[in-house]
Write a protein that binds this DNA or RNA. Structure first.
Length: 115
RNA sequence: CAGGUUGGCCAGGCGGUCGCGCUCCGCGCACGCCGCGGAGUGAGGAAAGUCCGGGCUCCACAGGGCGCGGUGCUGGGUAACACCCAGGCGGGGUAACCCGACGGAUAGGGCCACAGAAACAGACCGCCGGGUUGGUAGGUUGGUGGAUGGGCGAUCGGGAAGACAGGAUCUAAUCCGCACCAGUCGCCAGACACCGACCUGUCGGACCCGGCAAGGGUGAAAAGGUGGUGUAAGAGACCACCGGCGUCCGGGGUGACCCGGGCGGCCAGGCAACCCCCACCGGGAGCAAGGCCAAGCAGGGGCGACGCAGGGUUGGAAACACUCUCCCCCUGCACGGAGUGGCCCGCUCCGUCUGAGCCCCGGGUGGGCCGCUUGAGGCGGCGGGCAACCGCCGUCCCAGAGAGAUGACCGCCACCCCGGCCCCCGUGCCGGGGGACAGAACCCGGCUUAUCGGCUGGCCUGGGGG
RNA sequence: CGGGGCGUAGCGCAGUCCGGUUAGCGCGCAGCGUUCGGGACGCUGAGGUCCGGGGUCCAAAUCCCCGCGCCCCGA
């Protein structure tokens, strides 16, 4: 996923954590807040609860990969925060993608695609 | 062949699709560090834990004292080390080999629970000598009492059926008698009893004085071991051999240390991962070091040192000179503070009321660039060294992110495991499953810890065959 | 990156510095008593890999080393 659509400044992350709305799934948590940009930016997060460095890296990679695949179908103009939860290190990529799609649908951020 | 031991290496490979960071090249423009395309490159043996050692950067550096921390057999390697190599010593193992915080306990202090007499110098039991004393056995002896049909003598009486005593003997045969019996007196004997003395034994005897440390028991630990001499009993008290310690001499080794010999008293425990002593080492902080650029903001309050003396050759105070005063500068002393990141002295610097510095409250930023990957570097060859390692030559450039890139999915081939097919095995075929520990963040050298497995070398022990 | 602390019974803590005797206290738990019953109270009892491994020592919760987990502080 390209860096220009990544949510990288800690200021932005803090804003989403404070103002954003949350949707939950055993594998991850989705936080979303509208932004002033014309495009959607995505940040990825894995806390210490997920595991050691290897586990946290894998969790973030899985989330980024899932977000990359779904990005064309996401509504523009949002800041999203994907927070990993511990069970995510046990599953494969398609399950993460499915979970993220489910949350995005619940959040009403999914446009133009139906499975 | 089996078992063991030790070292080195690898960390699946190839391909496809969709993606990511960095560097370079090309093209495009609304020229930004933007878009598109291409090429190259992109985690580890431990990147981990952060336990040591350095490089690097900044701060501080005249020096002295006290303290603190670390290291601790020797030699070598190294930038350095708590690491590595070689060696010594000690321990374990049949061996290969492995393990060892491995200076000092006669510099000093402290501790060694319980048990035990005693835990560092001692005596509970014990052994021995002497003395006092008790129970008990035997013996000797003294005293007292004393059974006895005791003995002898005297005397009185009885006394021929010679009564009473069995025998023998004597005398007599009338009597007195005698034998004999009984009484009394004297002397003597005396079983036995009691009291005492002495001797010899004996008692889980008692107590006192002294000698001893062999033996017993306690303990984790108790004063060299064995044999002998010796002694009242014993003991390195002495002797022989062995073991250990100290010291001296000779020899080997750079050294730790080893070998041999002499002498010495057997000198006298353990713990320094208790304090300590000795030797050596260590200034502090850490890439959020440190530097540059951009942007932004707001200040307020409190504490805070007696200040003094001297000098200024053209120092200044708007004409010149002199004096005083004030300001400024210098020096000395005093005081306050900063630095010397444990403290003190000292030193350097700043300041002494227009105030050094410190404390509290409040405000702003939290963007970018450099440091930032060429290095005690990797690979190959030659040479030196037992080795760790070093030198020379050639060659290569090999991650540099910044919420943090190296990912996702799939196929094939190897490896391992499980199941099925042929009666079993090797094997072949088919199907399924598995592949660890773990993610660079300034960089190296080590240590430690985690790890599915695989490849390979040396050595040792045992068995078999030639 | 640097520094500090904690880990002992179900829970909260002593004991650790300076090694030794039964590892103790409170709450909780179980049983009994008391009460008509409960609470409170009284008596009795159970319950411990002293975070794990190794070492030093005759002897380790305690001393040393390594590791694990948690918490805190500074830049």
């Amino acid at each position: 996923m390209e860096r220009r659509i990544r949510l990288r400044r800690s200021k932005d992350v803090e804003r989403v954590r404070k103002e954003g709305q949350a949707w939950h799934h055993p594998l991850l948590v989705l936080l979303a807040a509208p932004n002033a940009e014309g495009r959607t930016r995505i940040g990825v997060l894995a806390g210490r609860r997920v595991g050691k460095a290897v586990a946290r890296n894998r969790a973030r990679r899985l989330l980024r990969e899932a977000a990359r695949r779904l990005y064309p179908h996401l509504a523009p103009g949002w800041d999203l925060l994907l927070i990993a939860r511990p069970p995510i290190v046990e599953v494969k990529e398609p399950q993460v993608e499915e979970a993220l799609g489910q949350l995005a649908r619940e959040a009403g951020l999914l446009v133009g695609k139906e499975t």
